[in-house]
Nucleic acid binder design. Structure first.
Lengths: 249, 249
DNA sequence: GTGAATCCGTGTCCGGCGGACACAGTTATT
DNA sequence: AATAACTGTGTCCGCCGGACACGGATTCAC
């Protein structure tokens, strides 16, 4: 990779350091010059760059210049780029949607939760790239998870199952966010793909009869297809949960 | 990014070029020296590097040296790194699992399909990073999709719904593959995260009561928890599909 | 009040990255 | 034999993440 990535302290130490950064409190220096930056400002600057030009445009240099500062100054606050991205993720996931009064309607709550999360990914498409692999969760991300798990509080599901349900929903949100990523500014990168894939199927469709049939039978606008996929998956998951809950009662 | 990434021909042209590369046929030069490489060898070399040291270690230089060749030689075969990765993805997804005789048991077929796909992601954890965002699918990837869609052939689902179901399952596979990524060689990067997250919850658990309860109630080994999450999500999705299919009959 | 300890942001340097381009050597056509 | 096409190579560029030494600012102990 481009990363002259420091390779010492791999694994647990790294995660612990990230946790300290995300969960604070930050140690306040007693002596020395005033600090010109703080983690929140740095995170916001990174988010601004990523929102405007994608995660690929986020470099130490770029974020530093956004803050009128040398890139090495950032290293006084953040151990490395990975941690910067972790900060950006938690910053971009805020704020949480307004909290409804806790109702026993777990299904409606989860549906709304997933919808809000999907919008969040839509506002910050780079979140997809920034959240691959096992990561340390920040306070905001954990608060999102808390909402989903809490929505299942009155059900006969076990603790592990509630977590699993939240993970399952998150996966669907990610999948759909991915399918619609860059559909906004890119002027329909998705439609382009659709067109190119259509061409491929025209040439090699005989090897993929089921896909070809399904693809052409559903030759609606890509955006509408995306909405349908979202609703379809969401309802399938919620139906599956309902089946289990009904079994337990 | 590190990529001095060429920024011309964005979007459709790029996708079309990738499609030509993935779907062939490759134009055979009439004159000139014999070619020492071919796309399959290049893809294999890339996969070998990624398997051994992760996608981050895959650079033109690294892949070229693996083939005893200068990096610029690769550019005679591949327009850029993105296309190289696309080739690697399709190469790593092969071979498909052996084809059973088509049975009407869509549920069992889909479960087996998802399981095979999960194993595929387990063998090549870097596939997760390599398959974010809207991409061009290669022949092998499309063949995987074909299998899933074909499994639903006898059902009352529409074409669009069959595609949506496959997408839904793929999302769950990705989520779980992600949770278990690097759990092998890293000696349990996942267990480390589990431990660190436990520490965080010990300090800030009062702000996340539902998660804390669920987390500690399910204080089993991370690996077992992962298996449970897999089965849970898979069965929820299949139950959801079954509900819909039953409604239609 | 003053010296020392501490921490700030900067400048410079490194190896590695993706990619452009000119070049000499090899090959099939004419 | 001349030519046109194509090969892999070497060199160059700007950018990346990161290490490290430095001078100036700030605050503490005395």
């Amino acid at each position: 990779m481009a990363e002259g990535t420091r390779d010492g302290d791999s694994g647990e130490a790294r995660h612990a350091a990230t946790a300290r950064l995300l969960w604070g409190p930050q140690p306040q220096p007693a002596r020395g010059p005033r600090r010109t930056l703080d983690l929140a400002r740095i995170a916001r600057a990174g988010v601004a760059v990523a929102d405007a030009e994608g995660l690929a445009a986020v470099s130490m240099q770029r974020v530093a210049s956004q803050l009128d500062v040398t890139k090495m100054a950032l290293y006084r606050y953040v151990p490395g780029k990975a941690e910067l991205v972790a900060l950006m993720v938690d910053a971009a996931l805020a704020p949480l949607p307004p909290e409804d009064e806790p109702r026993p309607d777990w299904r409606g709550q989860l549906a709304a939760w997933a919808q809000h999360l999907l919008h969040g990914f839509g506002r910050h498409p780079w979140l997809l790239d920034a959240t691959v692999g096992p990561r340390m969760m920040g306070p905001v991300e954990l608060a999102w998870l808390e909402r989903a798990v809490a929505a299942l509080d009155g059900t006969p599901l076990t603790g592990a199952e509630r977590l699993d349900a939240a993970v399952l929903l998150t996966g669907h949100v990610r999948t759909l966010a991915q399918q619609g990523a860059a559909a906004g500014p890119g002027g329909g990168a998705e439609a382009q793909l659709h067109a190119v894939l259509g061409g491929v199927l025209r040439d090699h469709g005989d090897r993929f009869p089921a896909v070809t049939t399904a693809f052409h039978a559903a030759a609606t606008a890509p955006a509408a297809a995306r909405d349908q996929a979202w609703e379809f998956g969401l309802h399938r998951i919620l139906d599956g949960l309902e089946t289990l809950i009904a079994e337990r009662s």
